[in-house]
């Protein structure tokens, strides 16, 4: 447990969170390397199956990052994404995974600081939760 390095997948909207991540880069704001970003055109594109697949394959945490409320490039993708995330959270609880391993966050393209901050707090949180039980089960 001491050396546990979680793997966290961040599905990031091209228009906001992905840009914010680039921004964190430009400003050289460090955050844990545990967070791996996958770019999607809109957080509303996030599929419940993709989230579940990530957990199935061994992700310790997943977050979906969309635009601030009202700022969605496609009107309401971020709202739809939030609903789907909430749905999967419930499902995770049902199958015995902590729902905190999954989160929906909202961020604007200009928020490099916030992106780095989020990546750090998310990593810390997952570190505390420990490795995903799915991974432990797979190892058996």
């Amino acid at each position: 447990m001491e050396n546990f390095e979680p793997v966290i997948v961040a599905f990031c909207c091209h228009y906001c969170a992905y840009t914010a991540a680039d921004m964190a880069g430009t400003q050289r704001l460090p955050y844990p390397a545990n967070v791996k970003i996958i770019r999607i055109p809109c957080s509303g594109k996030i599929d419940t199956l993709h989230i579940v697949k990530a957990f199935e394959k061994g992700a310790d945490g997943v977050y979906v990052a969309g635009c601030l409320e009202g700022d969605c490039h496609f009107k309401n993708g971020n709202v739809k994404a939030a609903k789907r995330v909430a749905y999967v959270q419930k499902y995770l609880e049902e199958i015995g995974l902590e729902s905190e391993r999954l989160e929906m966050v909202n961020i604007s393209a200009g928020m490099g600081h916030r992106f780095a901050e989020l990546a750090s707090t998310m990593t810390e949180k997952i570190r505390k939760l420990g490795p995903s039980p799915v991974k432990a089960a797979a190892a058996l």
Binding site: V7, V9, K36, I38, I40, P41, K45, D47, L49, H50, K53, A54, K57, G58, A59, K135
Partner: peptide, 17 residues
């Protein structure tokens, strides 16, 4: 942004694990 391309990324990431 086809599903198989997104899933391929997810699967590749955890290949090692």
């Amino acid at each position: 942004f086809e599903d198989d391309r997104i899933l391929a990324k997810v699967e590749q990431l955890f290949e090692r694990i």
